[in-house]
Write a protein that binds this DNA or RNA. Structure first.
Lengths: 337, 337
DNA sequence: TCACCCTTGATGAAGCGGCACCAGGTAACT
DNA sequence: AGTTACCTGGTGCCGCTTCATCAAGGGTGA
């Protein structure tokens, strides 16, 4: 049960003014006597008055809030993207509302409803691994609320996107493995529905082809990113008649898990099997052996996405652009390869 | 520039109804003809109608939103607390607005203003390392908006708090070091203003006393949690005439940094120097050597804090409680000690 | 000195989108 | 005809902005 909150009417009454005058004093309108303004500001301060943004937003049809929907929160990737995005957003005077979809489509849909109900001025999204239908996101476009995708994007929506060059990153990672003498390189891939899975897989394939290594389908395993399943797939690979001498993982958490499994089996990384990840998460440089990985500019991605969104919000719906910003990756060679 | 949004008036017009009827149909009021309700719901669906929570909140004086203010976002600790808190909050139908204070007092104050302006129904806070004045938080109490502190709490406010038993955790960590034969145990402590620093320091001291080891003030270094300064302090300790044979760190990121510095100097962990942390962050089990640390129930902390807040929100201001929930820690012995 | 206009500072009312309460109106039953 | 149950309409209001008004005073020219 909240108490009565202080409103401009309270201030107006105490100073014998109309609420319009108080409102103008507070918003810095010029046609207000300096003494009056002073009195209003002082009393407001004294009463802990806070403008009710709900009321203001209702009038201006603008909440100064941008929504961010991410699939999860537990690796370092998304929190860092959010840090970058918040930095840009708050500089521009925007607050952020963050939702996790927990990698499930239903939750993502629910999240978008929350965002709509709360009238966000724009939306930053990275979709779940399950999301195949995009109607819940297209609603925003129809309503004139700009969307920007980052990392995990939707191909059939014509909106700004921020991604890294997944193909190139994967290509270079695998090339590096080949150049260090690996012949049988496995790939623990992500859900085929995700573009990043597809592109990294293509980079992997291209690197093999370029080096005249025949693709062995047996060595490519798509999985749903549930870390607890990694041991199954790794053990399967290691039990093959002709096991791989290297594994390229869709991302760092997976790679880290792979290394744990390999070590548990008594094999040595990289002597017996090399492992390469993708992301350069915080933990990657710390584990033993330190993980070779493809670093992506995470915070930068958040910043870029937020900036694209702000740009879009400042445009008329008719002038909306659909820029795709591709950020560069960098291969970081450490001890796991 | 947003387009016109669909309102109940639009629906009312198209169906030749009054907006009251539409409102009642939408909110599930019983006294609406089934056919009418059906028509309203269908049209609403078709027009992508979304209730405007701003308007509703303005009327009900309730936003169904709880605010969370955390100092940072870059270690795994706070994101995990948030995961727990969001789980409980969303089950109870509440959204969350998250702000980072970036460990600075000014930002924290600004964050509280945002929370007030957005009319949050309750607030979860972990203060910055700088925060010594609490007026900006006391405002919430005066306005009848409940606050719950977690992890980093404010002692002179009578509100619910969730902490771990920092004293006990530190005591057991240091006791463990002593029992494994360490004689000169240093402590890289946190800012003295933070209760957790003080309590962990006290636990450290108590363990020494209990084992008749004299406290050497030279070995206790308070620092401001800026990781980039860790090398300075560690090198200082290692350069002492009588250097320590163990370091107990205020938290895991610090301990991890300490290990890096020690390794860089060519010394061995734990042979030359043992290191113990506090938190059991994700990375702690992965580094080499795996970090001995005091694990705290992070997600649990978020859940408990959120639950205490919900409880408080359901009480009248007069009945507010100020429970302090102390969660248990657990010593996890790994290879760094 | 007076009528007029302009400026300054303040007021009043409408309305943003929705809910809740008070009034009706209609049809069916007593 | 009166009562009841069912539906539906109208209005006020949540806190605030904004536009149209207006009163008071100062300056100007005849």
């Amino acid at each position: 049960m909240k108490r009565h909150q202080v409103t401009i009417v309270d201030i107006a009454k105490q100073l014998n003014l109309s609420k319009s005058t108080v409102s103008r004093a507070l918003t810095g309108h010029p046609s207000v006597h300096a003494a009056t303004r002073q009195a209003v500001l002082e009393l407001a301060e004294q009463l802990d008055y806070q403008r009710n943004m709900l009321a203001i937003s209702l009038i201006t049809n603008k909440t100064n809030t941008i929504g961010i929907i991410v699939p999860e929160f537990s690796s370092s990737f998304f929190p860092n993207v959010i840090i970058g995005a918040q930095e840009i957003a708050s500089k521009a005077g925007y607050n952020t509302v963050i939702c996790q979809s927990n990698e499930t489509y239903e939750t993502e849909v629910a999240n978008t409803k929350v965002m709509l109900a709360n009238q966000v001025d724009g939306l930053l999204v990275s979709i779940t691994k399950e999301t195949k239908n995009f109607d819940h996101l297209k609603v925003f476009q129809r309503k004139g609320i700009p969307i920007v995708f980052f990392n995990r994007v939707c191909d059939d929506m014509d909106v700004p996107k921020v991604i890294v060059d997944d193909f190139d990153g994967a290509y270079r990672a695998v090339t590096h493995l080949i150049e260090s003498g690996r012949k049988r390189i496995a790939h623990l891939s992500g859900p085929p529905a995700l573009k990043i899975s597809e592109k990294r897989l293509n980079g992997y394939k291209a690197a093999l082809r370029k080096n005249n290594i025949e693709l062995d389908e047996e060595l490519v395993i798509p999985y749903d990113l549930s870390l607890e399943k990694v041991p199954i797939y790794v053990n399967h690979l290691l039990n093959l008649d002709n096991p791989p001498d290297a594994i390229f993982a869709i991302n760092d958490p997976t790679a880290i898990e792979i290394i744990q499994v390999i070590k548990k089996r008594g094999l040595k990384v990289p002597k017996d099997i090399a492992v390469v990840g993708f992301s350069n998460d915080y933990a990657s440089g710390l584990i033993d052996p330190a993980l070779t990985t493809v670093s992506q500019p995470v915070k930068e991605m958040g910043k870029t996405a937020a900036q694209l969104l702000l740009d879009q919000m400042n445009r008329d719906v008719a002038d909306w652009k659909s820029i795709i910003r591709v950020l560069k990756t960098e291969l970081i060679v450490r001890n796991s390869s």
